[in-house]
Simulated scan of single mutants.
Amino acid sequence: MKFDKNLKYTFSKDKYFQYIKSQGRYISSVEKNFGKKYDKENVKIINESQGVVDGVYQVMRIWCDEI
């Protein structure tokens, strides 16, 4: 999935946690804190394959909801 520059996105902790579980991993305390802290945060799109929250942390498109 790619980011569309014409749309806006928010980070979703539920999709993030689901992705981690689908990889066969347990959610670490660092990942839990990240998910809770940035849940519903707007994503700044850098290019079609990169988005960031808080201006620093890269997120994948599949972790985000379209607004």
Results as ranks from 00 to 15, higher is better:
32 K>V: 08
54 D>R: 04
3 F>E: 08
8 K>I: 03
37 K>I: 05
59 V>T: 01
39 D>L: 02
21 K>N: 12
46 I>Y: 08
19 Y>K: 15
43 V>G: 00
57 Y>T: 06
15 K>Q: 10
35 G>I: 04
6 N>A: 01
51 G>T: 04
63 W>E: 11
29 S>M: 04
28 S>K: 00
43 V>I: 04
24 G>K: 10
2 K>A: 12
59 V>N: 00
67 I>Y: 09
63 W>Q: 13
12 S>H: 02
53 V>A: 02
43 V>K: 01
1 M>W: 14
38 Y>R: 00
52 V>P: 03
53 V>R: 05
19 Y>H: 14
47 N>C: 06
58 Q>K: 15
50 Q>C: 11
37 K>Y: 07
28 S>H: 01
47 N>L: 03
4 D>A: 04
2 K>V: 09
50 Q>I: 13
14 D>P: 04
39 D>A: 00
56 V>S: 12
25 R>A: 11
15 K>E: 10
56 V>W: 10
44 K>S: 07
4 D>I: 03
11 F>Q: 01
10 T>M: 07
16 Y>L: 06
26 Y>C: 11
47 N>H: 02
9 Y>K: 03
64 C>Y: 09
41 E>I: 07
4 D>L: 07
52 V>I: 15
20 I>D: 07
48 E>Y: 07
31 E>A: 10
53 V>T: 09
